[in-house]
Design a protein around this nucleic acid. Structure first.
Lengths: 159, 159
DNA sequence: TAGATCGTTGGTGTTAGACAAACCATTAAT
DNA sequence: ATTAATGGTTTGTCTAACACCAACGATCTA
């Protein structure tokens, strides 16, 4: 009983903190993103799309954990601004393959630069190195879903 | 000018990823938290309160970046469940010093244990060590606010 | 041909949260 | 002592982000 292993320590749950920091970031992001005609959730969608190339809308709904019908609306927003493109998948013409356009890529980069100040403010307690670590952890965490990892169902041929 | 510093690399903005991961976590947390009578934002408030001891409600509003009137409602929820306590500050009887009760602390711990499964699912791509790093980064980031750091205005004597 | 699937539209309902107005108790300024 | 400012509370309105349902057309599969 003298020195229990780390396992029995009070658990360090990130959930609440994640929520908290993310909320602060999102609130401030809104004003920065508005001039670009974007809202936070648009940015998430664009980021995810860049990270995982062309996806069907259904895949996208899974990754974003959003209802399919709402994904349609989100993509409509982005499409009317020419930020994304929906093409019919040649292998299954019911599906739409969603991809960033050049305009979308460029706007995403611009948005990210614009967000530098915000991030600077919200993450001011972290060093540059720590921020990079944070980025990598989040990227890694978001790139693999539980279901995806275990059922490997999402990745079907699109083209 | 040969080797430009890290600054000029394409910026790695965490914002969108933070939002994304946090959203996935929150969605799943809801069902786990519901049996305990908590909602995600309650958990944030409890966590913040534990981290920074007794705060006035105004300070809390600043930290949570929420409107004061909404903080009242949030605290009302928590108070009716005996999770927090509002005491008048002896130095300024207008203020309420908000603190976790023993019940609150215990419920928070229970909630965190209950969230282990959720975190396991959402952060399945991360090792235990990485999760701990993530926790520490988030904790550090959330513990200091820009305004707080620069104006040092928040910390006034409460008791 | 029948049934399932992908995307789309339109609609409803819920929730978080912003914001404003008015109020009381208290403190600070004159 | 009067006045003004502040912390908290209540009530109420408004918006955005969703989830969810029903129905449809196009397409694929059995």
């Amino acid at each position: 009983m003298t020195s229990l292993p780390v396992v029995n320590q009070p658990p360090h749950r990130c959930g609440a903190l994640l929520d908290h920091v993310s909320r602060r970031m999102r609130l401030r992001s809104e004003s920065v993103l508005a001039p670009l005609g974007l809202r936070p959730r648009h940015l998430i969608a664009l980021t995810v799309l860049r990270d995982r190339g062309g996806s069907s809308q259904q895949d996208l709904a899974k990754v974003l954990e959003m209802d399919g019908t709402n994904v349609v609306g989100l993509l409509n927003d982005l499409e009317t601004e020419n930020l994304i493109e929906r093409r019919r998948s040649p292998v299954d013409r019911r599906r739409h393959v969603v991809e960033l356009t050049d305009v979308g890529v460029k706007l995403l980069v611009r948005a990210e630069f614009a967000l530098a100040a915000v991030e600077n403010e919200v993450l001011c307690a972290l060093t540059d190195e720590q921020r990079e670590t944070l980025y990598e952890l989040l990227h890694q965490a978001s790139s693999k879903t539980e279901t995806e990892a275990c059922t490997e169902a999402v990745t079907r041929p699109l083209c």
